[in-house]
Design a protein around this nucleic acid. Structure first.
Lengths: 130, 130
DNA sequence: CTAACGTACAACCACATGGTTGTAGAAAAG
DNA sequence: CTTTTCTACAACCATGTGGTTGTACGTTAG
């Protein structure tokens, strides 16, 4: 089992703003989908959209500030790859809302503060009474 | 198991823009959390934030356009309640990215088009041009 | 009825966003 | 070396966003 480094610090408001804000654009979502598959240089990405290189560069910068992607130098290129951890952080946020909806109000803080991965011995006991 | 009405039409780009865009603001996320618990009038919500009634009203309108909340008249009040389906639609989107990351590229369309439940015959509608 | 409340909406402002073009530098190719 | 490629960034523009105040209108309370 691959136990990746799970830092699990939860995000503050501004980070969540940047995260969801970055996802609120179709071009950026498409870029995320691409670089989650494999890394691409910024110019390779730019070639695939009908906008200027600078515009794509800005989109990548927005994604980078949201921690959805990161860049790595390779010679004169800047290779962009997706970071699934940010995706998961957003997903945990949505899970927390789902939990609120289900009435599990008293568990919200836990859900936000801890992870929901299956190998966590913490979520074995699940109580959803009201 | 409660089998709710599962319409499961997937969202187009603009709807996803509005959805994530609406979530990219701390006040709006707080409103969502509140009205997922129980419905509140707009003025009751407005009383809880240090901004004008009109500002809160606008936030609610943004959430409404994103289908994250809906309003219902009760006398002279407008009762706002949260809609968990929009939350789930966003969560499915993130799940799709997670799936891409895991290399399950060929499963993306299914994940986007159907729910976690296996009994929906609906399909099609993808979001990215490759 | 009048007064108070809850809502809707328009006008306005400051600032962020998404796009453009242009300039400049660093690394690879010739 | 020179040229080309890839990147970075500044300046600019149009539009959107998040806030304000003010006005108007329907509904409930006295």
């Amino acid at each position: 089992m691959v136990v990746e480094k799970l830092d699990r610090r939860e995000l503050d408001d501004e980070e969540v703003d940047r995260l969801f804000g970055a996802l609120a654009d179709a071009t950026r979502r498409d870029i995320v989908a691409r670089v989650l598959r494999e890394e691409h240089s910024v110019s390779a990405l730019a070639r695939r959209y009908e906008m200027s290189f600078a515009a794509v560069q800005k989109h990548v910068a927005v994604l980078e500030r949201a921690a959805l992607v990161h860049k790595r130098r390779r010679g004169r290129e800047q290779m962009v790859s997706g970071d699934v951890e940010a995706i998961r952080a957003a997903a945990r946020y949505l899970d927390a809302y789902e939990a609120i909806w289900r009435g599990r109000v008293d568990r919200i803080v836990d859900l936000l503060a801890q992870d929901a991965r299956p190998d966590d011995p913490r979520d074995a006991q699940d109580e959803q009474h009201d």
